[in-house]
Design a protein around this nucleic acid. Sequence first.
DNA 1: TCGTTATTTCTATTATAATAGAAATGTAAA
DNA 2: TTTACATTTCTATTATAATAGAAATAACGA
Lengths: 111, 111
Amino acid sequence: MLNKEIVRYANMLSAMGTEPRLRIMRLLLSAHPQGMVVGDIKTELGIANSTLSHHLEKLKNVGLVTVRRDRQFLWYAANTEVLQELLAFLFAECCSRNRTIKPETIIKLCR
Amino acid sequence: MLNKEIVRYANMLSAMGTEPRLRIMRLLLSAHPQGMVVGDIKTELGIANSTLSHHLEKLKNVGLVTVRRDRQFLWYAANTEVLQELLAFLFAECCSRNRTIKPETIIKLCR
DNA sequence: TCGTTATTTCTATTATAATAGAAATGTAAA
DNA sequence: TTTACATTTCTATTATAATAGAAATAACGA
């Protein structure tokens, strides 16, 4: 397993690993696939401008959200392809060393 | 959404959000459901004793791994129930504000 | 009991992240 | 072309996490 790949996915998990950013991700997922503008995220979550901007930048840097501009508004959206990649990575080797549990359970876990 | 619940899941994501701990989780998942003893994790990943111990403690504190003692050995195992709970939480509200994407995609994302 | 191995805790150091006020930038509308 | 609004960047402060050597604890085997 390449180090770079692990670091990349660790950074994604870390990016979702704070209360404000997990709220942001869930909010963007709820509004998927359209996404939301920064101002509405701010209103909904009550986070200061500069703080929110940093959180969104972090999520963008690790690839968990995408941005597009429409006039003066920035629309942030969850990147669900990358999210699914992350989950696939996490479970990729699941149970590969032991085959002692029921196949249907393995399917649930290792999809 | 209760603050406590969000913080709990954010702590889980954060716990997996470093390279060494993501390696540990994947290693334990690969050895699921049996798990591994600390010494073998150490050998496989090459992490110093005290550092590994702290990482395992963090994963245990957030509920992502369980421990059992067998003689002088501590067996750590991934807690796959909690992992699935975490994923369910993350996607719980997925797309609830918009129903403009194809149902089969929603099913894939929001399971 | 004594030595051996497994693992944690203690202690300290170094590095990184979260927060937000204020100023700056970019875009549009009047 | 000025005013307003959306968002970021600058700057600073405060808090938290990662790492690991050395000492301590726990459990076993002789």
